[in-house]
Design a protein around this nucleic acid. Structure first.
Length: 111
DNA sequence: GACATGACCCGCG
DNA sequence: CCGCGGGCCATGT
């Protein structure tokens, strides 16, 4: 784990991911806001190129509507199925096939 | 620096 | 709920 091998922007993104506890998830927007980025899409890009996966829990980041979003470049398919499996394995609950149950979303300002 | 792309978000109908 | 258009920032060419 050597964060110096990535841009300072990604360092913030990955650091923010590590702040998310197992069994909970955060959103691209919240993560972006937490590191001072106005674009959640940029955050998504940083996660996509995340060289520290799964050491960096990029799977604990979902969209604002609490759907999974994407995983390793895929918005649907095996990788997404795996993302869902990882979250469920950590104790995250689902309201549907790709929707996180309310209450499993981590808040940076909440602890 | 300019152009194109992306694991996104918001407003409108 | 679904589709459409605009905005946002970082990355690669």
């Amino acid at each position: 784990m050597d964060l110096t091998q990535v841009s300072s922007f990604k360092q913030k993104v990955y650091a923010a991911c590590l702040e998310v506890p197992a069994g909970k998830v955060t959103t691209y927007k919240q993560l972006a806001s937490h590191i001072g980025c106005g674009s959640s899409q940029a955050v998504g890009h940083a996660l996509k190129v995340n060289p520290f996966a799964p050491e960096v829990p990029c799977h604990r980041v979902v969209k604002t509507d609490r759907t999974l979003g994407g995983f390793f470049g895929q918005s649907e398919g095996e990788e997404i199925t795996r993302k869902r499996a990882l979250l469920q394995d950590e104790g995250v609950g689902f309201d549907g096939d790709q929707r996180i149950r309310e209450g499993f979303v981590f808040q940076y300002d909440g602890g």
